[in-house]
Structure formats: structure tokens, C-alpha cells
């Protein structure tokens, strides 16, 4: 009984992970400019591995395999923001300008927010 429940949760995690992967990939193709595509890559690099590793961990229980999977997840989650930031920073220095949405009344840049 318990095993069936765990199996079903694991399936849901795996399939949701795959779905978020595809959504991230779609965003990578569909979104308008480089900086917005970074966010799409973020979807494919955070939630997708998180859900898939969770699904796989539920399959194997407590074992060496689980430990290695968790290590993989940690490596991915630690390196993903560093790589994203490096790419964004390099692009900014190279003069790639982010396009800004301007159909809202509030100012979009140049003003440091004071409410910390």
C-alpha cells in the first residue's frame, strides 16, 4: 500500500520534472531577448532537476545511489546560479542591452529601492 503511494508520488515528480523541462526549453526558444531567456534557462535548471532527482530518490530509498543523486543535485544547484551570473555579466560588459517593458507607469531602472 505504502509502496504504491510512493510509486505514484515518484511518477508525478518525474513527469512534472519533464514537463517543466519542456516549458523551460520552450521559453528558451520563445522569449524575446537574451536576459529573459536566462530566466527560462533558470526553470530548466532548478525545478526540473529538483523534481526528477526527487522522483528517482523515492525509487531507490536510502542507498549509495541516493547519496550520489543528492550530490549531483547539490552540484547542479550550486553551479547553476554562478554560471548564469557569469553569462549575464559577460553579456552586459559586452554591451548586450536588456529590453525593458515600458507600458507600466512605474520607473523600471536607475532607482534604488529603499524598502529593505
Amino acid at each position: 500500500m505504502i509502496e504504491t503511494v510512493i510509486d505514484i508520488v515518484s511518477w508525478i515528480c518525474l513527469l512534472l520534472g519533464g514537463a517543466f523541462g519542456i516549458i523551460g526549453g520552450l521559453g528558451l526558444v520563445r522569449l524575446p531577448d537574451f536576459f529573459t531567456r536566462l530566466h527560462a534557462a533558470g526553470v530548466a535548471e532548478t525545478l526540473c532537476p529538483l523534481l526528477i532527482v526527487l522522483g528517482l530518490v523515492l525509487q531507490s530509498g536510502l542507498s549509495l545511489l541516493t547519496l550520489k543523486l543528492v550530490l549531483i543535485l547539490l552540484f547542479l544547484l550550486f553551479t547553476a546560479p554562478t554560471a548564469t551570473h557569469a553569462v549575464a555579466r559577460a553579456a552586459m560588459l559586452d554591451g548586450v542591452e536588456p529590453s525593458l517593458g515600458n507600458d507600466e507607469s512605474e520607473p523600471t531602472s536607475g532607482e534604488p529601492s529603499s524598502n529593505t
Binding site: T108, S109, E111
Partner: peptide
């Protein structure tokens, strides 16, 4: 973000500090 990707017209990128 997934909602925005499926509906790209709502994307309002901004830069702030």
C-alpha cells in the same frame, strides 16, 4: 515563470537595484 513562458505577452522585463 512557467505561466509567463506559456503567455509571453505578459513579460515585462525590468532592471532595478
Amino acid at each position: 515563470v512557467a505561466r509567463l513562458i506559456l503567455n509571453p505577452a505578459q513579460v515585462r522585463p525590468r532592471v532595478f537595484k
